[in-house]
Design a binder for these strands. Structure first.
Lengths: 213, 213
DNA sequence: AAACAATTAGGGTCCGTACCCTAGAACGGC
DNA sequence: GCCGTTCTAGGGTACGGACCCTAATTGTTT
């Protein structure tokens, strides 16, 4: 892998683990086993590095927001979208979490969060709608929006919540799995039994994948 | 008010607004209109100041956790507890949010979060239980725990969520009110109509109080 | 072999920020 | 009117961290 890419990758991991403000360029270079000067060769400033990460983040989000429910496989398509969403949230946790450390002036992110969140509500609502159409989710349509919003919040903050609960959250802890199970408690009781079972299985698969990473 | 208390108060406000790591002792002194040296007179280190704030935080939490539902006034007592909980969350937001900035070694807080959260689940569950006993909440008992946990998460992260949504969150924005309304969407449809109305009224009152502060 | 890109080691600058020190002034209770 | 507490102004230290520069080495391409 190109050194530039290794830098972006390792920086992302370190920022997630230790917090953006706690990772010095010296530490980063040491972790990579390269000279610090080499960092400045690839990125003029620390902020430029951050922006490179943020760019990946933005395109991951946009890709996920393009996913649509499949009426022929509502459960499977929902699970796939969930997997992407959680990957996105755990791979780029620090971007939201440490925003105070770097301010609002990071190009690929600045001011975009409200739009992203709003579109995530819409997206989840569409998936739930499809589940309802298929008779797999028994939920009054006029309350689907609230369900979508509450689901978004739980998924979004699940990792932080489990960290506060004292459970390790590093890449590959069970926090992703737990978060997904938690979100299910919002509507599981209204799911058709076979749908609930399939979702649980899918969650285990996603959780296992997260553990491996 | 004693200068020492003014310092603690203003520091708390600034930390909440700007983030712990972004507030320098110089800024703090300037905001207070006192000499920086005076800060060191009252607090030997920045961390000591933080600990004084954290102590207040801890005792506020403990006081709130001691509140119990009143079987004679389930709605009113629930609303009172909600008010305290939200005040606690908004007055001391930065303590959770900026934990990465100051590490885990702050006496009055270190390692206590899991216990606090767990006891908050218990507390909310008891309130819901009381509502159910009074016939005001129609919810299967075995799912009350999940409701309590999900409610806790929404209340806990509501302010962060509305900040990410781009709405001002400074003391006295509508974020507290919005968060409370959001949490209601979790179970409002199962509340007795008059209970729902009274809770909405109570939320407006709490929200208004938050606005005034 | 020549040209260019990538990388190293190690020096050095600059700046922000917590924190120290001191001499003196204002305040407040007794 | 005295004494201890509180507070000011301002200079001063120490340290960490981003970022610069350079001369020399290795790696890669053509």
């Amino acid at each position: 892998m190109k050194t530039r890419d290794r830098i972006v990758l390792e920086a992302r991991a370190l920022f997630n683990e230790q917090g953006y403000g706690n990772v010095t360029t010296a530490m980063l270079a040491a972790h990579l086993g390269i000279a610090e000067g080499n960092l400045w060769y690839h990125f003029k400033t620390r902020q430029a590095l951050l922006e490179a990460i943020a760019e990946q983040f933005a395109s991951r989000i946009d890709a996920r927001l393009d996913m649509v429910p499949d009426a022929l496989d509502p459960i499977g398509s929902y699970a796939r979208m969930l997997g992407r969403l959680m990957a996105e949230l755990s791979d780029f946790r620090f971007i939201y979490r440490d925003q105070a450390s770097y301010g609002e002036h990071v190009e690929p992110v600045a001011g975009k969060a409200p739009g992203w969140l709003g579109r995530t509500f819409d997206q989840l609502e569409r998936y739930f709608d499809t589940l309802a159409d298929a008779g797999l989710l028994d939920w009054p349509r006029e309350r689907l929006r609230d369900l979508a919003i509450n689901t978004t919040i739980i998924l979004r903050y699940g990792l932080e919540h489990y960290r506060e609960m004292g459970e390790p959250t590093g890449a590959g802890s069970g926090a992703v799995r737990r978060t997904l199970h938690r979100h299910l408690t919002l509507f599981e009781h209204r799911l058709a039994p076979e749908a609930a079972i399939r979702l649980h299985e899918a969650i285990e698969a996603i959780g296992a994948r997260a553990l491996a990473a």
